Measured scan of single mutants.
Amino acid sequence: MSGIALSRLAQERKAWRKDHPFGFVAVPTKNPDGTMNLMNWECAIPGKKGTPWEGGLFKLRMLFKDDYPSSPPKCKFEPPLFHPNVYPSGTVCLSILEEDKDWRPAITIKQILLGIQELLNEPNIQDPAQAEAYTIYCQNRVEYEKRVRAQAKKFAPS
């Protein structure tokens, strides 16, 4: 494992614990031996107030490669969400998460999670990743928002 990646992720964890947006979660997972795995984080993004996503808490896994922060983490909703920019596998399609697009090593975990929260309610229809959600979003916004509200209710924190 890269010392650069681990040191950056340790800084990220410290900064997150000191200050993070209300309702968001970002925690490194534990290895079988109980030690912390900084390369694999369990996160959760709350649906934004005043949107059909409100009330939901959407679980996301963030996986970092050894060359982080040169390369972005892979962000994957578990379980996958109904959304035009979420692949059926759950992987998020967002330009700041793509090395050859808008990724920059200075982007923080907090910025990534806030960017994904923004994307939930403002899909990028130029870059669809899920045919069904994309089609319904474009053709029947009322039905799309109904499905999103049902999903938010399903993923409401207990």
Rank of each mutant, 00 (worst) to 15 (best):
M1K: 05
M1N: 06
M1C: 08
S2D: 10
G3I: 10
G3E: 12
I4G: 07
L6D: 07
L6Q: 11
S7Q: 09
R8M: 11
R8A: 10
L9G: 07
L9T: 03
L9I: 06
Q11S: 11
R13S: 02
R13I: 03
K14C: 14
K14Q: 04
A15F: 12
W16M: 02
R17P: 03
R17V: 00
K18P: 00
K18M: 07
D19N: 07
D19Y: 03
H20L: 03
H20E: 02
H20F: 04
F22Y: 10
G23Q: 00
G23K: 08
F24P: 00
V25K: 09
A26N: 04
A26L: 08
V27C: 14
V27T: 04
P28W: 00
P28N: 06
P28E: 02
K30A: 09
P32A: 13
P32V: 11
T35N: 03
M36T: 00
M36D: 06
N37W: 09
N37E: 14
N37F: 13
L38E: 07
M39G: 09
M39Q: 03
N40E: 15
N40H: 14
W41T: 01
W41R: 00
W41F: 06
E42R: 10
A44L: 11
I45M: 13
K49I: 10
G50C: 09
T51E: 02
P52V: 08
P52N: 15
P52F: 10
W53I: 02
E54G: 11
E54F: 13
G55I: 08
G56A: 05
G56D: 02
L57M: 09
F58Q: 06
F58P: 06
K59N: 12
L60E: 03
R61I: 09
R61V: 10
R61W: 08
M62E: 02
M62L: 08
F64Q: 06
F64G: 03
D66E: 12
Y68A: 04
Y68C: 05
Y68H: 08
Y68E: 02
P69A: 04
P69G: 02
S70M: 10
S70V: 09
S70H: 07
S71L: 06
P73G: 01
K74V: 15
K74F: 15
C75G: 11
C75L: 15
K76H: 15
K76E: 15
F77H: 01
E78S: 11
E78G: 13
P79Q: 14
P80E: 11
L81C: 05
F82P: 02
F82L: 05
F82A: 03
P84D: 07
N85W: 03
V86K: 07
Y87C: 02
Y87Q: 05
S89V: 07
G90V: 00
G90Q: 04
G90R: 01
G90S: 03
T91F: 14
T91C: 15
V92F: 04
L94F: 10
L94C: 08
L97V: 14
E98Q: 06
E98L: 10
E98C: 06
E98S: 15
E99C: 13
D100K: 12
D100F: 12
K101T: 13
D102V: 08
D102E: 10
R104L: 03
R104M: 03
I107K: 05
I107T: 10
I107P: 03
T108D: 10
T108G: 10
I109P: 04
K110Y: 05
Q111I: 14
Q111W: 14
Q111D: 13
I112K: 07
I112M: 15
L114C: 13
G115H: 00
G115E: 04
G115V: 00
I116P: 02
I116E: 05
Q117S: 11
Q117Y: 09
Q117M: 08
E118T: 09
L120H: 00
L120Y: 07
L120E: 02
N121Q: 13
N121M: 12
E122G: 08
E122K: 08
P123C: 04
N124A: 05
N124R: 03
N124V: 03
I125T: 09
Q126P: 04
Q126Y: 10
Q126R: 14
Q126N: 11
D127I: 00
D127T: 14
Q130D: 03
Q130V: 05
E132D: 14
A133Q: 03
A133P: 11
Y134S: 11
T135H: 04
T135G: 06
I136S: 12
I136C: 09
Q139A: 10
R141K: 11
R141Q: 14
R141Y: 10
V142R: 14
V142C: 13
V142Q: 12
E143L: 10
E143I: 08
Y144G: 04
Y144L: 01
Y144S: 00
E145I: 09
E145M: 11
E145F: 09
K146N: 11
R147P: 03
R147M: 12
V148E: 02
V148M: 02
R149F: 09
A150P: 09
A150L: 13
A152Y: 00
K153L: 11
K153S: 10
K154H: 09
K154E: 11
F155W: 01
F155V: 12
F155E: 02
A156T: 11
A156I: 08
A156P: 10
P157G: 10
S158F: 09
S158A: 14
S158E: 06
